[in-house]
Amino acid sequence: MKNPRWNPYLVGALIGLVCILAFALPGKAPGMSTGLSQAAGACAIPFLGSEGVAANAYWSKPSHRPGWDYSTLFLVGTAAGALLSAAASGALRLTSVSEEWSSRFGSSRALRLTGAFLGGALLLFGARLADGCTSGHGISGTLQLAASGWVFFAVMFLAGSVTAALLYRRRA
């Protein structure tokens, strides 16, 4: 199989360029978690009803209302871009358990998917509480020298390193 990876410094520089274009043209800093929260609002409609979602104090904010807008279409683009890259390099295939995970927790698919689900719940809850994720705070925030972005990055790295050290500790 071809190695689809490009030089990470080149990729970083090009992502920086995407950020510059995003500030210059639509005037919107790249971010992920606002759009994902809007998607969560759409997923909540079967449980809360569309009136329930519309009346929610969070989803009724203009930029958080579930629907097709800049934030949610950016997500569509992101998914399509990754799909395109994977398809072009022959890396498109169904997998569920990564190497690091299986070397520590075994190859149980159910365990991996349960862990990923719980981790995902923490990811978006945390991102909404902090008002941004690795994109909105970690790249868009830090590059504008926003204090919130740098604080987010530092605490996220600390919490992630401690968690990884505990999770992947070798049993004696």
Binding site: G115, G119, G120, L123, G126, D131, F152, G160, S161
Partner: peptide
């Protein structure tokens, strides 16, 4: 938020 996020990111192996 960043603390919860970091834990989630280490467990998932991904961010949003």
């Amino acid at each position: 938020g960043a603390g919860l996020f970091g834990i989630g990111m280490a467990v998932c192996g991904s961010c949003p």
